[in-house]
Write a protein that binds this DNA or RNA. Structure first.
Length: 568
RNA sequence: CGGGAUGUAGCGCAGUUUGGUAGCGCAUCUGGUUUGGGACCAGAGGGCCGCAGGUUCGAAUCCUGUCAUCCCGACCA
């Protein structure tokens, strides 16, 4: 491709809307263009990379025995109404009506439709097991789209669904997808971590996420270098850690703590440590109210609590007026003593002695509180968020924490959708049984952003060869020097002939502009044709490296071809 | 959905406090000089100051409303 004809609006300055590296670079390199919040056009360079990512995903899915099909993004409401998700999705589903006032939506995910397709198309149990997938646009009206294409309202997703007759079959299908995902993310040049994830309200028996570690990631992950354990914060099991307590036999005592609401204020006021307190937080779980207690220096893990309480729909902090009604006090003074709702207590609280809690009375706390003596927990369980410094639940070494971008998720669904929609089969004995499903997603567009997050420097993107929009670039330094131009043309044609995807910077720009753009758009390898081209010498440079080498024209071409072939 | 901020040329911004002809840098176009890391000189084009009302002789500027975008948090099947 000749760059004089390429639509590549590179920017010198960073558009004000971008905050994170990948978003800035995608805008500056002319990969994408924003149309509205969370909605982007893909310009030629961005689209080429997107298609390469899609192709890698496609190849590995096909290799794993999955079959590609594609569904409409515009979907009738019935299947979603049947599964109950028409309501569950709520405002995050783009809903619309046709001219006859029938309900439609833009597909946010396609469990229902794939299930329905299998119901409609599969006739005999002999056709199973089967895994189907598509690579297609998804639509979610996110409350808060952000970070460019990391969380957008229209995005490309690969979604796959497996259909098995037995649990063992599901395990096998799941394993194939797991392995395919490892190959995919490796080929994409991503440094990824596989973490245990919460299966939550979706039910199902197992779930793992593929995370790309990055400070801009929206998920917290806990991992152990010792044994390789890794889990999403939501899921990571916490081993209770003993903290120093006030020893001795004391009686509960009410103390006046005016205008002391937060743990920080309490620490200040009482001169005790945060771990001498237990905080009591009132939650609304669906229609009922519960209290959760964790040590003062810990956080409640709402996912664990939600699962424990058996909350189906929604777990959120109780409204302040309900907190007042339940505790008879202003917010900030809730405590377990005399509380009339179920109390879920973290295991660590059970280890504490003579601790401090709210007194369910404004401006009052209790000290010297002891569990089972002063109050009785409804349930004692692990309900806190894991932290740096916790110990690994598998091997006992120190846990580390990081932020991660979720690029893939695999999930043993079980029979949730096959039950809801009636996906059954007659087995060899003529008995009716339910098909067991798994679902497997990859955020294809998000992978692009993740790849840039992991592969860049102060000058721009450093594409892995496998997904670079073009693999190589030829730059004549001075467009007025006919010898350089002709030599560059020759190299360009020769590289094309050898099957390399190559850009020729034939623009009438100064050398500096060409170099800056080359770095910014991150083409993995380039040949610079300069002053020594009369002697048959050109410059070979890899984007990843600072150094460049002088080579003969033939050697430079060979080096580019070899570099590309060996890195793809 | 709660909190905060911002809307002025393709991009980055000033001007708003204190109302008085719409500005700067980059980019674009023309001519010239340049040509190995975002050149220089001269000239030119480009704006419903987010939108709608209001106050005023006069509004980018003050008031009201509204829309949009971004950030923090909640939510994320």
């Amino acid at each position: 491709m000749r760059m004089s004809k390429l639509l590549m609006p590179t920017l010198r300055e960073v558009p004000a809307e971008a905050e994170i590296t990948s978003h800035k670079l995608m805008l500056r390199a002319g990969l994408i263009k924003k149309l509205a919040a969370g909605i982007y056009s893909y310009l030629p360079l961005g689209l080429r990379t997107l298609k390469k990512v899609e192709q890698i995903v496609r190849e590995e899915m096909d290799n794993a025995g999955a079959q590609e099909l594609i569904m409409s993004a515009l979907l009738p409401a019935e299947a979603y109404q049947a599964s109950g998700r028409w309501e569950v999705f709520g405002p995050s589903m783009f809903k619309l009506k046709d001219r006859n006032d029938r309900d439609f939506c833009l597909g946010p995910t396609h469990e229902e439709l794939f299930t329905q397709t299998v119901i409609d198309c599969v006739r005999s149990y002999k056709e199973y097991p089967m895994t189907l997938y598509q690579i297609q646009n998804k639509y979610r009206d996110e409350g808060r789209p952000r970070f460019g294409i990391i969380r957008s309202r229209e995005f490309v997703m690969k979604d796959a669904y497996s259909f098995d007759l037995t649990e063992e079959g599901l395990d096998e299908s799941y394993k194939k997808m797991y392995e395919a995902y490892c190959r995919i993310f490796t080929r994409l040049g991503l440094d990824f971590t596989i973490v245990d994830a919460d299966s939550g309200a979706m039910g199902g028996s197992g779930s793992q996420e593929f995370m790309v570690k990055s400070p801009v990631g929206e998920d917290g992950i806990a991992y152990c270098d010792g044994c390789g354990y890794a889990a999403n914060y939501e899921k990571a099991e916490c081993i209770p850690q003993a903290a120093e307590s006030v020893e001795g036999d004391f009686d509960i005592e009410k103390i006046h703590t005016p205008n002391v609401h937060t743990i920080e204020e309490l620490v200040e006021f009482m001169g005790a440590k945060a771990y001498n307190f237990a905080k009591t937080i009132i939650y609304k779980a669906d229609d009922k109210y519960v209290a959760a207690m964790v040590r003062g220096d810990r956080e409640v893990n709402e996912v664990k609590l939600k699962n424990l309480v058996g909350c189906i729909d929604d777990l959120e902090l109780a409204e302040p007026f309900m907190v007042r009604q339940i505790t008879n006090a202003e917010v900030g003074f809730a405590g377990p003593v005399g509380l009339d709702i179920p109390i879920y207590v973290d295991k660590e609280v059970e280890m504490m002695k003579n601790f401090i809690v709210g007194a369910n009375e404004t401006d009052m706390h209790y000290k010297n509180v002891n569990i089972n003596k002063d109050f009785t927990p409804t349930v004692v369980a692990d309900i806190r968020v894991i932290e740096e410094g916790d110990v690994c639940p598998k091997c006992g070494k120190k846990i580390k924490t990081a932020q991660g971008i979720e690029v893939g998720h695999i999930f043993k669904l079980g029979t949730k959708y096959s039950d809801a929609l009636g996906l059954k089969y007659l087995d060899e004995d003529g008995k009716s049984k339910t098909v067991i499903m798994g679902c497997y997603g990859i955020g294809v567009t998000r992978c692009l952003a993740a790849a840039i997050e992991q592969n860049n420097d102060e000058n721009g993107i450093i594409w892995p060869v496998s997904i670079a929009p073009y693999q190589a670039m030829v730059i004549p330094v001075n467009s007025k020097v006919e010898e350089q131009v002709k030599t560059a043309e020759k190299i360009y044609e020769e590289l094309k002939a050898q099957g390399i995807e190559v850009l020729l910077d034939d623009r009438n720009e100064r050398a500096g502009v060409k170099f800056k753009d080359a770095d910014l758009i991150g083409i993995p390898v380039r040949i610079v044709v300069g002053k020594k081209c009369g002697e048959g010498i050109v410059e070979y440079k890899e984007r990843r490296s600072d150094a460049s080498e002088e080579k003969t024209i033939e050697n430079a071409i060979d080096s580019v071809v070899e570099f590309v072939k060996s890195n793809i």
